[in-house]
Write a protein that binds this DNA or RNA. Structure first.
Lengths: 210, 210
DNA sequence: CGAGTAACTTACTGGGAGTAAGTTCCGGCG
DNA sequence: CGCCGGAACTTACTCCCAGTAAGTTACTCG
């Protein structure tokens, strides 16, 4: 009933579901990235989109559901980036290095992705544990595959041992990534990847042959 | 007003502050260990102790404060156990192994300690980040000290590199510990420690000399 | 015994997750 | 055109839990 305001957007009327979902997801990714899971309320996100809270519940079910949707997207991108780098390498030693570089670089280039994925996501308790575990397992699998590639075909594989190795490496990369985000002038992705590769490579190679 | 019940404890009357604090801390450690930080309410703990919530607030200030008090105790025990094992070893390679064994064994023997310390604590967001970071840094320092011990005295220490190594190792042990608690029949502490030591030792030794 | 204080409680506020029950808009069909 | 069915969306709650204000009870020391 007012005069038309010049600064007002053409009042965002109804959109179809898919478009709204994308809008909500984009806002959620941004705000979760800025303030973390705990620090973000559903009302915050609703306000940012210019929509009411129950609509988000209708589309995403719960706060966890929304968070998980963010997670899934980021996880897919990250996993793809890293495995592309690994696959492109010509030998296992280089694959290891290339994978590390890709990992740290991706996280540098998507800082908000990081806090969503790990800084909060990976640690979550409750219904999210399952999904974040899945994310992690994808990487553990990738690493385990690399390790197996390096085994002489004859050798009987000790699966327990390979799992230990894969989790060690996954844990080291996660921790380093978190540390880099919290440190003023972190070493470059290349430096970290190189040091990590140097730390692991000999042991990995020896274990493969023993 | 009732007849004296035979099974009833002599109705826990007032205790002095120190005793109550200990009672509360014990209950908190147990319940946080069972249900996690999020899953535990202050009323739960108050009920378990048989006391009202504001009393806990008076003694510990906040839920975080109480959690942090649990953390501090456990951290001290764990750190002491591990560093004793490290100090008792005769050379660096054995110190590494002994430290890992002590770490995994402690966590086996104090399963609830684990979920309090790491599974929730290490990942916490907000005001707890600082304290948990401190806990972790204690271990990073310990590891860094070991690495430095292994350097030939002449060599100029590359502190950035040592930090990378220390965080890698700390991350690997953390992840392995979490993984072990979530896995049905985890390998023994000795097996894990041995594999981890084998994975790291050569690289560590080479990096020290290069 | 009475006064002072430490130990403790009742009864609240506030905020955020989640929900019940509508209301408004749009497209299609007579 | 009118009107009806469903999808998009909202108002106005409930409940749970962290945290608090203000008071009450019981022990201690003079």
């Amino acid at each position: 009933m007012q005069v038309t305001s010049t600064t007002e957007q053409p009042p965002k009327r109804r959109r179809d579901r898919a478009a709204r979902e994308r809008e909500i997801l984009a806002a959620a990714e941004r705000i979760f990235g800025e303030r973390g899971y705990q620090g973000t309320s559903m009302d915050d996100i609703a306000a940012a989109v210019g929509v009411s809270k129950p609509l988000i519940y209708q589309y995403y079910g719960s706060k966890d559901g929304l968070f998980l949707a963010c997670l899934a997207r980021l996880r897919a991108q990250l996993l793809e980036t890293v495995s592309d780098a690994v696959m492109a390498a010509t030998d296992v030693e280089n694959a290891l290095y290339a994978g590390f570089v890709a990992w740290f670089q991706f996280l540098d280039e998507h800082p908000q992705a990081w806090s969503v994925l790990i800084d909060e996501g990976m640690l979550a308790t409750g219904p999210m544990a399952a999904t974040t575990e899945e994310v992690r397992n994808a990487f553990v699998e990738l690493i385990a595959a690399m390790v197996r590639l390096n085994l002489p075909p004859s050798r009987p594989t000790d699966d327990a041992e390979i799992e230990i190795l894969a989790h060690s490496i996954s844990g080291a990369t996660e921790r380093l990534a978190i540390w880099r985000t919290r440190t003023p002038n972190p070493p470059t992705p290349q430096k970290v990847a190189r040091t990590l590769k140097d730390l692991l490579w000999q042991g990995l190679d020896t274990l493969s042959k023993s």
